[in-house]
């Protein structure tokens, strides 16, 4: 076997392996999509492709809870949280990376320390706080406690530290204020890190379950995850394809956005670790 055929074989092997692994990762999603269209008795042990496509599952799931509202709530909460985290992290990271001030190590430590605090342990004290603010059943309760991120500060500070100082000088010469420098130059230059932060923040906000449940009582303020989790109520539900249809409804919008902007997503997420 000469080097060329060996290379060809290697290439074939890599191709086969890539395809196999891709399919393994996609299989659960595929199963979800097909299962959501099945009859309850066809889900386990029945054929993989539904013999009859049960669109009724979706109607039933859609009518059993205001999923439209839930999704919009999730979208609003996750977007605003992402925006605020980006802002607060950029400001703090700028101070940490470009200014000298007393207690600077302490400030950085405080930011990093929040990563170590098991968030859900703070449920009750935080519940009391937002209640004192009158924020129960409001977007405030879902957004403000998460408007700053230790990880975000850490990520952007590292990115800023690695940005050449020559930029600062030219900005100074042009008479830029610190804020215009930060928003017009420093952040755009570090767009990859910022979009990494945005993707991760958006996803973790979208994912949140326990806090949104505690902080809201009414459907007007429920998020999609809370609405979906309540579907898994043993006493009430045995129609699994309907649960799968609800899961489909909640999952597909994000997946769709993801597949449309796959390259951007992956490149963004990738830059979160690069500058470590």
């Amino acid at each position: 076997m000469n080097a060329k055929t060996r290379h060809l074989w290697g290439q074939r092997g890599l191709e086969a392996l890539s395809l196999l692994i891709a399919l393994l990762f996609l299989a659960p999603l595929l199963w979800l999509f097909l299962g959501a269209f099945k009859a309850p008795d066809g889900l386990f042990g029945g054929p993989l492709i539904p013999p009859r496509w049960e669109w009724e599952n979706f109607l039933e799931a859609w009518h059993s809870a205001p999923f439209g509202r839930f999704l919009i709530n999730s979208l609003i909460v996750s977007s605003l949280t992402t925006l605020l985290v980006g802002l607060s992290s950029a400001l703090a990271a700028f101070a940490l990376a470009r200014m000298e001030f007393p207690l600077k190590p302490l400030a950085f430590l405080l930011a990093l320390g929040t990563l170590m605090i098991p968030g859900d342990a703070l449920l009750i004290p935080n519940f009391l706080t937002i209640r004192n603010f009158g924020w129960i059943n409001s977007y405030w309760a879902l957004i403000v406690p998460f408007a700053a991120s230790g990880f975000g500060i850490f990520l952007l500070r590292n990115a800023f530290l690695q940005t050449p100082r020559e930029l600062d000088d030219s900005a100074r010469l042009d008479g830029a204020t610190p804020l215009t420098f930060l928003f017009r130059i420093l952040l755009p230059v570090n767009a990859p890190a910022l979009s990494a932060l945005s993707v991760l923040t958006f996803l973790s906000s979208w994912n949140a379950l326990v806090w949104p449940f505690v902080a809201t009582n009414r459907n007007e303020w429920r998020t999609a995850q809370v609405g979906l989790a309540s579907f898994n109520n043993i006493e009430g539900n045995t129609d699994i394809p309907v649960v799968l249809a609800a899961t489909f409804i909640v999952t597909v919008p994000v997946l769709l956005v993801y597949f449309l902007a796959q390259k951007w997503f992956i490149e963004s997420a990738a830059s979160s670790g690069l500058k470590g």
Partner: peptide, 13 residues
């Protein structure tokens, strides 16, 4: 008045 209940799915309806 508000009633807080814990049954979902069909029973919730």
């Amino acid at each position: 008045i508000t009633l807080m209940y814990g049954l979902g799915g069909r029973l919730g309806e």
